[in-house]
Simulated scan of single mutants.
Amino acid sequence: MTGFASGRGAIEGYAWDWELRSVNGKGLDLRLRVPDWIDGLETALRARLGKALSRGNVTLSLRVQSEARSGRLQVNETQLGDVLEAIGRIESEAMARGISLAPSRPGDILAQRGVLEAASTEANTAPLQAALLEDFEPVLAAFLDMRRGEGAALTEILNGQMDEIARLTGAAAEAADARRADVSETLRAALARVLDNSEGADPDRVAQELALLAVKSDVTEELDRLHAHVTTARDMIATGSPIGRKLDFLTQEFNREANTLCSKAQSGALTKIGLELKTVIDQMREQVQNVE
């Protein structure tokens, strides 16, 4: 099921942006892009998402900016003292030997290795992690609300498709009743032709074979199973998520019965209904991929 939510937050020294999105998926695939320097954050976020979701390809992105990681530099006082002391000794030695040196410039001193360094990033990240996890809750809530809204719309669509499948199943039953006389007449005519053109054929044996053909062309079981599948699907939809995988399997059963109905049709009207059933079932199958 698709969904999207975003958010922003900040505490002293840090600011961040959230982006949470999902697309359809058979299972639950969580992809997190979060700073690895915040100990334990990814594990905690993954646990919360896994508890709240059961299906979909979900991507969570978190960008954290901090003063310590924004390029701010600080002077290493110890290293600066060592560099200045070394410069003083060099200048004194040069003067003793009558050598004139150009005055040292601040830029030259700062360019010495170790004088300037990045601000320390070894601070305790536990307070930041706690703030992030707290701020994530409204983002997750907004994300789930969007998915629930889409789920409500899907419920109406799926119920409408169930209504259409039920209607077509009823129409198939009527078409099957209407073709019964034609099937019986066709079988009797076939039996007569076989007996007229077969010397020594056992009439009882031929009748048994034709009876088996009649049984194989009967679609009562397929129609009964379609009715049962409609009832089961309605109950699942009324129950609510997570039902996506179960519905996905049930649509395969719907399709199997519709295929068998078409293969047994022996009637233009019944074949047409079977093809319409397959169309609605395929549409339902596509929508079921959106259900958690």
Rank of each mutant, 00 (worst) to 15 (best):
S6Y: 07
G9T: 08
G9H: 10
A15C: 07
R21V: 03
S22P: 05
S22I: 01
V23P: 06
R33S: 14
V34H: 05
T43P: 00
A44K: 08
L45M: 13
A47D: 14
G50V: 06
G50I: 09
V58L: 15
L60I: 04
R63T: 13
A68D: 10
R69M: 09
S70K: 06
G71M: 03
Q74M: 13
E77Q: 15
T78H: 12
L84N: 07
E85C: 07
G88D: 13
I90A: 15
A94P: 10
A96V: 02
A96D: 13
R97H: 13
S100C: 01
P103D: 11
S104D: 02
D108I: 00
I109W: 04
L110M: 15
A111G: 07
G114A: 10
G114H: 11
L116I: 09
T121P: 01
Q129R: 15
Q129C: 12
L132S: 08
F136K: 08
V139T: 13
D145G: 09
D145C: 03
R148A: 14
L154P: 05
E156N: 04
N159E: 13
G160W: 04
Q161R: 15
E164N: 07
I165N: 09
A171W: 00
A171M: 12
A172R: 07
A172Y: 03
E174F: 01
E174N: 10
A176C: 04
A176H: 12
D182G: 14
E185M: 10
L187C: 03
R188Y: 01
A189H: 12
A190M: 13
A192W: 01
V194P: 05
E199F: 02
R205F: 04
R205C: 00
Q208C: 03
A211K: 03
A214Q: 14
A214M: 08
V215R: 13
V215G: 02
E222C: 10
L223F: 02
L223H: 04
D224E: 12
L226S: 08
H229V: 04
R234V: 09
T239E: 12
G240R: 10
S241E: 15
P242N: 09
P242E: 03
I243F: 04
G244E: 00
G244K: 01
L247W: 02
L247E: 03
L247S: 04
L250H: 07
T251C: 15
E257C: 09
S263N: 09
L270E: 03
E276K: 13
T279C: 07
D282L: 11
Q287L: 05
N290F: 00
